[in-house]
Write a protein that binds this DNA or RNA. Structure first.
Length: 587
DNA sequence: GCCGTTTTCGGCCCGACTGTTTTCAGTCG
């Protein structure tokens, strides 16, 4: 029983509580908070429980600690089992319908006793739902639309897909002369790995009238990417794009812009403690302002930017990526937030493929594309021989690649450098796909798992740790193997992997491919705290793949990384020395 | 269910929007 499993149980309790007839939203929220508190804890949960270390953790009170102990001792939480037994599956399914929440779900269930979405759809078509107390025709239609929508669309979208759509719309809106400020907000601005919808906040001059607002809304809802308009007013309009992503546009006067941008950037979890802090300082925050309460009256605290808002709350500016209630508020009040890495800090690329294995572009094309993008080196890492599916390189092919690299490096004469790397398969038993004599000839080695995903967590973790112990390994590639929205990662104890990497001076990469974004940002923070260096690699198989670095930067920032935590902010010489140091230590 | 620079009880972020009502509950972000 590990932390993640218990956290999932607590989360499920929260969801099931919301569906109880006499539910208490604060009890439900307590379980949500506890879920995050638990996920943020460092160390082995069984040990923490044994040592009675949970007491005092914010968000974990006596009741929930008892439930955690029960989960560890018995493998189950009886309270959760009871809730599961009490909750019909259809209620959980209905929770996914937009505009329908626990109260309406219970009303539908109690009166109509539907047991499936098909039965609910039938009941709507027979006009039964519209006649329930508190319901009407519109709600019934909304349920039908929701059932239709869910059958067509997945719930979330990868960041690159959402960002592309958002950028098209943002660029179009930016052409309007009435627009003063314009920004994409929401989880996209926070650089979450997947997003549910796109939020855009736009400001007009403070004296702009409704006609100007409506002109903007008309322009927005008539964009070619818009499939359906789901709401349209002078302050807010909502659409669904052909790609299935929902987009909300909010139009405010420019003096409201920072407050509205902040509000719609979220996260909700960040706002709750932030507003509590405001309250303690006799202030209140809403979508339209930050107010000081003086003799019972609200006085606007004038802010030009979000930074002004945080300053008014006597705290450091919190960059959007950190707004997840993962310790940033407490750190900001101590003015102790890290100076986060930016794309500008990167000097080179580590982890890219060429036509020698499964890449689509040649060595030279990849190098030239890096030069164009302002990088001073690229670490080429084609697959190793076991990766037959990906055209892994034999020793003979390695010799050819190395010769070509030497030739090109001579041509570049120090202006640019290609590093000889490999993405070497970690074999089933944790040994590497090349012998040490070959590994020693690379400038650096990334070790990755590409096979035997089905091993048990213990076996997979041991396999990974054995690879980490190999003195030639510099970096662990995509440590969980997850493919976002498609495939969960293989079972592995990431904490144990992080501890082993810290002990042996091995880096763990942030794979910047938007389908991976692995190491997950929630663990990046933890790895950093253990002193692990975290390179950002695009895992590029094409020239365009090199542009994925931006997503890796987002994950790095979400993981609180500074430039000094990321090896590819070093110049080539320093980086090579850094990689070499590990081998020297081990010999 | 958690929590405490007035509190161990009585709060818990805040407001807009929608649809159903005739003053408000539910949902959402």
């Amino acid at each position: 029983m590990d932390k993640a499993q218990i956290a999932r149980m607590l989360e499920e309790i929260g969801v099931l509580l919301s569906l109880k007839e006499d539910s208490n939203v604060y009890e439900q929220r307590a379980y949500e908070n506890a879920t995050r508190a638990l996920n943020g804890l460092d160390g082995d949960i069984e040990q923490l429980v044994k040592d009675k270390k949970l007491k005092g953790t914010p968000g974990l009170g006596p009741t929930i600690i008892k439930r955690i102990e029960e989960a560890i001792n018995t493998g189950t939480i009886s309270f959760l089992d009871e809730l599961r037994a009490q909750t019909p599956a259809i209620k959980l399914q209905m929770l996914r319908l937009p505009g329908i929440g626990p109260k309406k779900i219970n009303a539908i269930y109690d009166h109509l006793k539907v047991t499936s979405m098909a039965e609910l759809e039938q009941a709507c078509k027979e006009n039964k739902v519209a006649h329930l107390p508190g319901f009407g025709k519109k709600t019934q239609d909304k349920i039908l639309e929701g059932i239709d929508f869910l059958s067509k669309h997945t719930e979330r979208h990868r960041i690159n897909v959402a960002e592309h759509e958002a950028e098209q719309i943002r660029a179009a809106l930016a052409t309007l002369s009435e627009v003063v400020r314009l920004e994409v907000a929401g989880s996209l601005r926070r650089r979450r790995e997947t997003v549910k919808d796109i939020d855009i906040v736009l400001s007009v001059a403070d004296n702009a009238d409704d006609a100007i607002r409506m002109k903007i809304m008309d322009f927005f809802t008539s964009q070619p990417s818009v499939a359906t308009i789901t709401g349209k007013g002078t302050t807010k309009s909502s659409v669904v794009l052909h790609s299935g992503i929902a987009v909300d546009l909010r139009v405010v006067t420019d003096s409201h812009f920072p407050y509205t941008l902040h509000h719609f950037t979220g996260s909700r979890e960040h706002h709750i403690p932030l507003r509590r802090r405001a309250q303690n300082m006799q202030m209140t925050i809403n979508d339209y302002g930050l107010f000081k309460i003086v003799e019972g009256k609200e006085e606007l605290v004038p802010c030009q930017t979000e930074a002004d808002m945080y300053a008014a709350l006597d705290m450091q500016y919190v960059p959007p990526e950190l707004r997840e209630d993962m310790g940033e508020i407490e750190a900001a009040t101590r003015y102790a937030l890290p100076d986060l890495i930016t794309e500008h800090d990167l000097q080179g690329i580590i982890h890219a493929h060429t036509t020698y294995s499964d890449g689509k572009n040649t060595l030279k094309e990849m190098a030239e594309a890096c030069i164009e993008r302002g990088y001073s080196y690229i670490g080429i890492t084609d697959h190793s021989k076991a990766a037959a599916y990906a055209g892994g390189l034999t020793l003979q092919e390695l010799e050819e690649q190395w010769a070509e690299i030497d030739r090109l490096n001579a041509e570049y004469a120090g202006r640019f450098r290609i590093l000889k790397g490999t993405e070497c398969d970690i074999l089933r038993d944790g040994s590497l796909d090349y012998d040490d004599e070959i590994l020693a000839r690379f400038d650096f080695v990334i070790a990755s798992i590409h096979s035997n995903f089905q091993l048990s967590e213990t076996e997979q973790t041991q396999r990974m740790i054995r690879a980490i112990e190999n003195p030639y390994v510099n970096i662990i590639g995509h440590p969980t193997g997850r493919i976002l929205l498609e495939r969960a990662g293989y079972a592995i104890n990431l904490e144990a992997v992080i501890d082993a990497a810290a002990e042996h001076g091995v880096c763990i990469e942030i794979n910047a491919n938007p389908a991976r974004l692995d190491l997950d940002w929630r663990y990046v923070h933890r790895a950093r705290d253990k002193g692990i260096k975290v390179p950002i690699g695009p895992d590029a198989h094409t020239l365009a793949g090199l542009d994925d670095m931006r997503y890796g930067i987002g994950v790095a920032r979400k993981g609180w990384l500074r430039a000094s935590d990321v090896p590819n902010t070093m110049d080539a010489e320093t980086l090579l020395r850094f990689f070499q140091e590990r081998r020297n230590k081990k010999k």
